[in-house]
Amino acid sequence: MADINLTINGQKVTVPEGITVLEAAKQIGIDIPTFCYEKGLTAPGACRICVVEIKGWRNLPPSCITTVAQGMEVETESPAVVEARKTILELLVANHPLDCLSCEKSGNCKLQDYSYRYGVASQTRFEGEKHEFGIDDSNPYIYRDLNKCILCGKCVATCRAVSDRNVLDFAYRGFNTKIATFMDTDLKDSTCVYCNRCVAICPVGAIVDKTMMGKGRGWELEKKEVTCTFCDSGCKFDVNYKDGKFMGVTAKSPDQGRPLCLKGRLGIELIYNPDKSELPLINKDGEFVETSWEEALGIAPIIEKLTAQKK
């Protein structure tokens, strides 16, 4: 493959043909912000936060889908680029709940990080309508607050990556655009199997793991990567500890061909949760209470008879 010579922020760089400006910049340690780009999964060129200035080009092209060309002169933080990024962030912030104080994603949120990086305060020039979508708290696994959604579309892409899922897509138009399930129902009434791959990939706090809520800030949690052995897919999960204490198992960003599944996640939890009961639980008057294996399996009468026989 031929080599391409280009300049990024005045720095000469030689990269292989066919890679993007974003990747080329990364090779020399220049970080360009991205929302909708996910390596190996999707690059729809939608969020426009990764725009750069290329000498001689009419507009500001998104670096995640612009391939390098011989002699290109790229500026990743020029005044025009910074102005565009700041404006895009302001637009997102203007339509965001901004409850960072209690948001699960705080500290691990791209919108927060970039707003900090480009000095965008929560009070913007734009005062107007904000989304008022209802919160989807219909199931025990995923808490969905679409008011925080920035419509990067990564959840749609990752959901579609597993052939029989394809639960999510864009719906409606213009300002009312949102990510929805078929017929825009809650997740409970959709075909969602709670594999949480969307949770793992969401750059903001729109889709969060409900079982982890309130259990610790991102920076407080220590993560241990484990590989699930329930089937031959070999999906990766994170076991989360806070101050050495087990907190829960979360889905890790899915790699190509890895389905992730609820069974795997709960199974791993069973392995790593030290507080797990050795006894089964049974639903009595709406409460799960510990019970004996005999009762849970419905073999108490048989055991009774066997014991009687022995005697």
């Binding site: 339509n95 309508e129 213009g174």
Partner: peptide, 14 residues
């Protein structure tokens, strides 16, 4: 607006 990119979706609204 199709709602895909932020400048168009949010910007035209403002």
């Amino acid at each position: 607006s199709c709602g895909k990119c932020i400048p168009c979706r949010e910007g035209t609204k403002r």
